Amino acid sequence: MASRRPEDLRTFVVGCIEAAGGVVEFPEYGLAEALLPDSAAPTFGGRPFLRIAFDPEVARERPDAELAVYGSEFLDRLVSQATQSGLATVRYLHVDRLEVTRPAERLTEQFQFVNCRPSLDYSAIRGFSYLLFHFKLVYLTDEREETFHSVLVNLNTNRPVEDAERFLHTAIPAPSRPIVCPEGPACSVPAAYRTACVFLKRQADRTFRAKQEESRRQLETDLRRIDAYYNDLREETERRMERSGDPDRADALRHRIQAYEVERERRKKELEDKYSLRLQVRLTSAALYAQPKIIHFVRVTHRDRWFPVQFVWDPLLKTFEPPLCDLCGEELRTIAFDKNGQIACWGKGPKT
């Protein structure tokens, strides 16, 4: 996808300001307030405090706010600055409360345990990370349309975060790592990048197909107009040939008809090139978000057998991350055992 979604624009603007060392808050819908360090103020017109409106209506009500919409002067300046600054950054996230109260109850509330029961074994604090990839997409025909799309990947699961906006608006950067602890499991950066590209392609394909269909309709309309124009010319010239009694004149008109056909094909080829849609994608920057989480090591017991399952508590979003199926890689929200005494693979359908 990539479409001109307002949440993608907000993510990009907030990311640029936080990368410069600033802090962003949203006091009301469509309006952000940014506090900038002295080192970053020159980038934003020398002002240490900035109001940013993400909607023209909000900008009209707040004349002191910078309008951040696609095509605005403020966004153009921000994009220019972002392309000249560092392409990667690390942000440590502040967590108010790390522990989860009544973890056993929270597990049974969030997950369904069928023909089995969970029991907490022990827990451990580990460091986990997310990678936020910022992409620039350019749709090209005879015109140029630019848009931005951000993809957040959980390095623990190597899956894109669907509700990335909620995570990014909840995340509060800390000046340094708040808790020093061992690192939890994580996929490699290239693997996360491939995941982000697959997710981006799925999103961008929808927009691309929609734009391609619009271009196809416009092309068909213009081709019909071209054919009608040259058909009229041909018919008129043929009538003049029939009325002409001069063989040389008739031959000249015949050559004119041939020239019309050559010109028709040339103009149709020009139209096809004009409406040919192309997409260019470029990774502009990336940000690593590091935060502590708690791994709960849980025994899931079925009759006389038990299996260890790890549930990761996210103190920022106040939820357990679903574990992944070892067979299909899909999230497990229902834990059950099949007839062979193995945890059922719900991604392929529960075994009976």
Rank of each mutant, 00 (worst) to 15 (best):
R224F: 10
D227M: 03
A228S: 12
A228D: 12
Y229W: 07
Y229C: 03
Y230A: 00
Y230H: 01
Y230E: 00
R234Y: 06
E236G: 03
T237D: 00
T237V: 02
R239L: 10
M241Q: 05
E242I: 06
R243W: 06
S244C: 04
S244K: 01
G245A: 03
D246A: 01
D248F: 07
R249H: 07
R249Q: 10
A250Y: 04
L253S: 00
L253Q: 00
H255S: 11
A259F: 10
A259R: 11
A259N: 10
E261N: 11
E261G: 07
E261S: 10
V262M: 14
V262G: 11
E263Q: 14
R266F: 09
R267G: 04
K268S: 13
K269G: 09
K269R: 15
L271T: 02
L271M: 10
E272G: 09
Y275W: 11
Y275Q: 01
Y275N: 02
L277V: 02
R278F: 07
Q280N: 09
V281D: 01
V281S: 04
R282T: 10
R282Y: 05
L283P: 01
L283N: 05
L283M: 10
T284P: 00
A286N: 10
A286Q: 15
A287Y: 08
A287S: 15
Y289L: 15
A290L: 15
Q291K: 15
I294W: 05
I295H: 11
H296M: 03
F297E: 07
F297K: 09
V298W: 06
V300D: 04
V300R: 04
H302S: 13
H302G: 04
R303G: 09
R303S: 13
P308G: 03
Q310S: 13
V312H: 06
V312Y: 07
W313A: 04
W313H: 04
D314W: 09
P315W: 07
L316M: 10
K318H: 13
